[in-house]
Computed example of a mutant assay.
Amino acid sequence: MTTPPVRVLLADDEHLIRGALAALLALEDDLLVVAEAASGPEALAMALAHRPDVAVLDLQMPGADGVKVATSLRNELPGCRTMIVTSHGRPGHLKRALAAGVRAFVPKTVSARRLAEIIRTVHAGSRFIDPELAADAISAGDSPLTAREAEVLELAADGAPIAEIAERASLSQGTVRNYLSSAAAKLGAENRHTAVRLAQRRGWV
């Protein structure tokens, strides 16, 4: 009796990369790409519709990043194992991914053949963390920001005014100023713009 192929969802907003990966994985007899998606919400919808065994998620996608999609899938489709591929492997991203139950964290520089091996590893119930990314995460330490500080800092990333951030976070303007000032102090930044850059560089927002 033949074993059914591992059903795979590919989610990446770069069409060329996603198409190339789908074509290369199609060459593997034991893997079957059942759906593709170009955004976070589409990835979640496709996963619920096609029920893949493994979801290969780009870290940075429109609508919701790979970690947020993985968190939703853990709740809504617990049988689907998730893995993140990224060209921005910052330490905080890896820690968020692991907290969300992601089984593999892989740089986009990996070959298609190696990616196929990692998909099999994840499907079999094991984990794979790129050693270099893991070493960076350990050396960077944990984020000093509270969840609320990180959220407000993330909302400030596009240069939005305090009033707009307050509205989006459902907070008063004074509270938003306090969170931003506290975050900047913890990061040793002279203002919120520098604080955003520092936090993004370390993957904390």
Rank of each mutant, 00 (worst) to 15 (best):
T2V: 07
T2L: 07
T3L: 06
T3V: 00
T3H: 04
P4M: 06
P5D: 13
V6M: 05
R7E: 04
D12L: 03
D13W: 07
H15T: 13
H15K: 13
L16H: 08
I17E: 02
A20E: 09
A22R: 01
A22W: 01
L25S: 09
D30E: 14
D30L: 11
L31W: 00
L31I: 04
V33A: 03
A35H: 00
M46H: 06
A47C: 05
D53N: 15
D53R: 03
V54W: 02
A55N: 09
A55G: 01
L57R: 02
L57N: 11
L59M: 14
L59D: 05
M61N: 04
M61K: 03
P62K: 12
A64S: 12
A64I: 13
K68Q: 15
K68P: 01
T71A: 15
E76D: 14
L77T: 13
L77Q: 12
P78E: 12
C80W: 08
R81W: 01
M83P: 00
S87K: 02
S87P: 03
H88K: 03
H88N: 12
G89M: 02
R90N: 08
P91L: 02
H93R: 01
L98K: 14
A100R: 11
A100S: 07
V102Q: 14
A104I: 12
A104E: 13
F105Q: 05
P107Y: 10
P107F: 08
K108W: 00
K108I: 10
V110C: 07
V110W: 01
S111F: 07
R113L: 10
R114L: 08
E117L: 09
E117K: 06
I118E: 10
I119M: 07
R120S: 10
H123L: 09
G125K: 13
G125D: 04
I129H: 03
I129V: 15
D130K: 02
E132C: 08
D136F: 11
A137M: 06
A137W: 13
A137F: 03
S139G: 07
A140D: 03
P144T: 04
L145Q: 05
A150K: 08
D158Q: 10
D158I: 04
A160I: 01
I162Y: 03
A163W: 00
A163R: 14
I165Q: 15
A166Y: 01
R168I: 09
V176I: 10
R177Y: 04
L180A: 09
L180Q: 11
S181G: 08
E190D: 13
E190L: 05
N191S: 06
H193N: 09
A195F: 08
L198N: 04
Q200N: 08
R201S: 14
G203T: 00
W204P: 12
W204Q: 03
